[in-house]
């Protein structure tokens, strides 16, 4: 898990970074698979002769091989489950932690909102509500991300989300929304998503207020997020934090000296 990120409520904390299981070892650690049996190594069987000891050694290795093979099967099964049905299969919105900022710095703080993966589907609507400390942070607005929608010259377009910074600063919550009013022509779709290249949904822009002090860790918490489909009522195909079909990872803004 990337340092400083905290999973949204309702998901196990301390789990692996969503969508980033890199090895069977990590999968094992995640699933808490049992440790290898070690009791045979204590030598308490009472076989004192060298021959007895040799025989005992051959049986031990059979146990080790057998148990190891079983563990490998279990690990593979766990990996398959994890990638398809476990937390890694559930898309997540990740508020990327920005670099620490000096309390005197009034430069813009840009927070990328990254999507870990996008299942098949067409998503003409998306919204994100992020709570912040309006006493210490000022919402400046949002910027385009890198994730593309269908449509536009060349077949894709990076949309501009709607946000009202004044309202956000009054409420202490950024409410941003993108809506394709044609229903699907300019919708988000897997074709417009590419991990690493086109996976930033939008960027939230803040600025420190004078009341921010060195040492402050200002929370940015996802209150609600959804990537909406038109047939959600029939198929439950939308991705929504409220339905636990979309995870969300909060972040903080560190205020340094």
């Amino acid at each position: 898990m990337t340092t400083g990120q905290q999973p949204a409520d309702g998901f196990a904390s301390g789990g692996p970074s969503a969508g980033a299981v890199s090895s069977a070892h990590d999968a094992v650690a995640a699933t808490g698979a049992p440790a290898p049996v070690r009791g045979l190594e204590t030598g308490s069987q009472g076989a004192g002769s060298p021959a007895g000891l040799a025989g005992a050694g051959r049986r031990r290795w059979k146990w080790v091989i057998g148990i190891g093979g079983g563990l490998a099967v279990l690990a593979a099964a766990a990996l398959i489950w994890y990638l398809n049905w476990g937390p890694a299969g559930v898309p997540a919105l990740v508020l990327e932690k920005p670099a620490a900022i000096s309390a005197q710095d009034r430069d813009e703080i840009v927070v990328d909102v990254r999507l870990t993966n996008l299942p098949e589907g067409v998503y003409p609507g998306a919204s994100l509500a992020v709570e912040f400390d309006r006493g210490k942070l000022e919402c400046v607005g949002v910027r385009q991300g890198t994730m593309k929608t269908l449509g536009g010259a060349g077949g894709f377009s990076i949309p501009i989300w709607s946000v009202d910074a004044d309202y956000a600063n009054r409420e202490g919550r950024v409410n941003a929304m993108y809506l394709d009013q044609t229903g699907e022509t300019w919708a988000y779709a897997p074709d417009g998503f590419a991990k690493g290249d086109a996976d930033i949904l939008l960027r939230l822009v803040f600025r420190l207020r004078d009341s921010a002090q060195a040492g402050d860790e200002l929370d940015l918490r996802v209150k609600d997020a959804v990537l909406a489909t038109t047939d959600n009522a029939l198929r439950g195909s939308s991705l929504a934090t409220a339905d636990r079909t979309l995870r969300a990872f909060h972040t903080t803004v560190e205020v340094a000296d």
Binding site: P124, G125, A126, S127, A129, M177, Y178, L179, D180, Q181, G183, D224, V226, L227, A228, T229, T230, D231, N232, A233, S238, A240, A242
Partner: peptide, 12 residues
Amino acid sequence: LINAQDATDSIS
């Protein structure tokens, strides 16, 4: 909740 799902549902 009122969010993009509701706006999308209106279009739908």
